[in-house]
Simulated scan of single mutants.
Amino acid sequence: MIDPNYIRDRIRTVPDWPQAGVQFRDITPLLQDPKTFRVLVDCFVHRYMDQQIDVVAGVDARGFILGSVVAYELNLGFIPVRKKGKLPFHTVEESYELEYGSSTVELHTDACRAGDRVLLIDDLVATGGTMMAAARLIAKLGGTVAEAAAIVDLPELGGSELIRANGIPLYTVCDFAGH
């Protein structure tokens, strides 16, 4: 098991971005360093390698980076949960609130099948709106979120509590509680 501080200490905090008062947790330093990126990916791969997962879904856009690599390592397919208007085929959509606005995400109607157990990955959990919208899309297609996963939890924004309260198991590598 990796020390969560190893990952947390390599995340850059950008104050007042994208708007005043927001402490943006930037994961790009994790991706830029080969050793740290490998340790991060291995955290997820080792957690899920013996679990019954049928497909990995990554949330637009940073969830694509981690989700696709984890899917590859687990020998699973990858489905992108995209922002509205980015998918070329028939879609289902779900709107949600962000900590600083609102948005809509979509999935192709053939992204997963009824009964699929889906690992849902994003970079962080803030209000939980994005993860919950993605989970509702997966459910619309008959899939089940086996677990939601992220690098970072921002527990003060209530998202991790919301996700768990909706019966979805959640795994995060580190959190920024009180930071």
Rank of each mutant, 00 (worst) to 15 (best):
E93I: 00
L76Y: 08
D60L: 13
G129P: 02
I65C: 10
I163A: 01
D116L: 11
R82S: 05
G101V: 14
G63M: 11
D50K: 14
T104N: 13
L87S: 00
G58W: 02
V59M: 14
L87G: 06
V41E: 06
Q51F: 03
H108Y: 08
G142I: 08
E99L: 12
A111G: 15
T130L: 00
D122W: 13
L157W: 03
E106V: 15
L141Q: 04
E99Y: 09
P169Q: 03
L141H: 04
V70N: 11
V59W: 03
Y171K: 03
I138N: 00
L124Q: 07
D33G: 14
L162K: 13
Q52S: 14
D50L: 07
A126W: 01
D116S: 12
E106H: 12
F44M: 09
M49Y: 07
R82C: 02
Y72C: 10
L162A: 15
I138H: 02
L124W: 08
G178W: 01
V70F: 11
F44S: 09
V118M: 09
G158Y: 01
I53T: 00
D110C: 12
M49G: 00
Q52K: 15
D54I: 02
D42L: 10
I163S: 03
G167I: 13
A57Q: 10
V118Q: 06
E106P: 12
Y48K: 02
I121R: 10
D153I: 07
L154G: 08
T91R: 12
I79Q: 05
V118Y: 06
G63V: 09
L66F: 14
I163Q: 02
G159R: 01
R164Q: 09
H90D: 08
H90S: 13
I151N: 04
A146P: 03
V39M: 10
G101L: 12
A135K: 05
P169A: 14
K140L: 03
K140A: 11
G129D: 00
N166E: 12
A139T: 12
F176K: 14
L66S: 09
G85R: 00
I138Y: 01
P88M: 07
P34H: 13
P80A: 11
S103K: 04
T109V: 15
D153V: 06
S103H: 05
D153W: 00
D153L: 06
L76V: 05
H108D: 05
K35R: 15
M131I: 06
